[in-house]
């Protein structure tokens, strides 16, 4: 077997196009960007690391289990319902951890930036949950987990890259008006370009 063929390639089936999770993930990425940018790096990384641990790893494991061992015979709605539920639970857990960290470990009022950060983290969680719940209604389980798998992989890829981009853009000699969000938007745009190309190929 050559290559990484966990899934088969498709031709022109719009509902199955892996672009959807990509789009949602791009959006999440933008939010994550904002989250990191607004807060001290260490704290943001903490939050994102928790999100990764609570979501990505179990989801990836489950996706693998589902695609490889269970096959296509698994009833559609039931499995995706489980996934979604699990997903929401883990996201809620991550958000709760953030809240705990910032309310009880730091004083609420002191860090205005951190408040914004928490808000964004929550928004991020809800959005990603919607992404996968939304996908549920259209697809067979096979496609759903396929998309999920790609999405999880990209999520894994994104987080360290976002951290590095945020750090690196602070060193760019651009005028102040371009600093911060506009610069990061452009960076994300370029990333999206790369991913667009990749998604065409996939």
């Amino acid at each position: 077997m050559s290559g990484l063929g966990v899934y088969e390639r498709r031709n022109n089936m719009p509902e199955n196009h892996p672009f959807y999770p990509l789009l949602f993930f791009l959006l999440s990425a933008l939010l994550a960007f904002k989250v990191i940018r607004l807060s001290a790096n260490r704290a943001a990384r903490y939050v994102l690391a928790w999100q990764l641990v609570c979501i990505a790893i179990p989801s990836a494991a489950l996706a693998w289990v589902q695609t490889v061992s269970l096959g296509k015979n698994f009833p559609a709605l039931g499995a995706s319902g489980i996934f979604t539920a699990f997903f929401l639970i883990t996201e809620a857990a991550a958000a709760a951890l953030c809240l705990y960290w910032f309310i009880f470990r730091k004083r609420w009022k002191e860090y205005e930036k951190r408040n914004q950060m928490i808000l964004y983290a929550l928004l991020l969680s809800v959005l990603t949950a919607l992404a996968f719940w939304g996908g549920d209604f259209k697809a067979e389980i096979w496609l759903w987990s396929e998309r999920f798998f790609i999405a999880v992989v990209f999520y894994f890829l994104f987080t360290p890259m976002l951290i590095s981009l945020v750090w690196r853009t602070s060193l760019c000699p651009v005028p102040k008006i371009l600093k911060g969000e506009p610069m990061l938007m452009i960076s994300t745009g370029l990333l999206a370009l790369g991913l667009l190309g990749l998604s065409r190929i996939f």
Partner: peptide
């Protein structure tokens, strides 16, 4: 290598390098 074979086209490698460009600052950091 991975991207060439995951996608079936050798030019995909360049996209991979584009994404890796984003990772390069991480090493510095």
């Amino acid at each position: 290598v991975m991207l060439r074979h995951a996608s079936g086209q050798p030019e995909a490698a360049l996209y991979g390098l584009l994404i890796l460009n984003g990772f390069a600052p991480l090493f510095d950091e």
